[in-house]
């Protein structure tokens, strides 16, 4: 009986292994995406060595004074240009930071954090869906949409 069991196991292994397994596959180009994350947030925690986003959300109130777009990059070893563009609900650009230079000395940095802040005029009608777009070295890297709702600055 044990002999039969071994034969069955060998047959099954042969079916799976014989058909498709290789032990060496083509080398790949290492992925170049350095973006760890991009978040929209209300506040910033600067108590540690690096900035951390606080109150991450995608919905804000028209009474909020500002909105931050926070980016975390990894493995940066060259000078990079970051740029934020903010678009209002009618799809018009309302803020363009221009290029912000990071790591001018071209050192190796394991983690880089940066953010841009959109100031809201609480007297304006800001309600609707907004978009913020982040570019790195003139190339699009990510967009984020968020909603601004009519409301109070204070949560009840």
């Amino acid at each position: 009986m044990k002999k039969n069991i071994i034969i069955v196991i060998l047959f099954v292994l042969n079916t799976f292994l014989g058909s498709c397994i290789t032990f060496k596959s083509d080398p790949l180009v290492f992925p170049d995406n350095q973006v760890e994350f991009i978040h929209l947030c209300k506040g910033m925690d600067d108590s540690g060595e690096l900035l951390e986003p606080v109150d991450i959300q995608s919905e804000f109130s028209s009474k909020d004074e500002h909105i931050n777009c926070f980016i975390k990059l990894k493995d940066v070893s060259i000078k990079i240009h970051l740029r934020w563009k903010w678009y209002s609900p009618d799809n018009k650009m309302v803020r363009d930071t221009g290029d912000v230079i990071i790591n001018q000395e071209e050192k190796y940095l394991g983690v880089v954090t940066a953010y841009d802040m959109l100031q809201l005029d609480t007297e304006d009608k800001n309600e609707g869906q907004w978009t913020v777009v982040v570019f790195m070295n003139d190339k699009f890297i990510e967009s984020k949409t968020f909603i601004i709702k009519k409301g109070s600055r204070f949560n009840i």
Partner: peptide
């Protein structure tokens, strides 16, 4: 096609078609 399997982040077997 010609894929590499990673098991808990460790490179393991390769497959011609999977």
């Amino acid at each position: 096609f010609n894929v590499t399997l990673y098991l808990e982040g460790l490179e393991s077997l390769g497959f011609k078609k999977f």
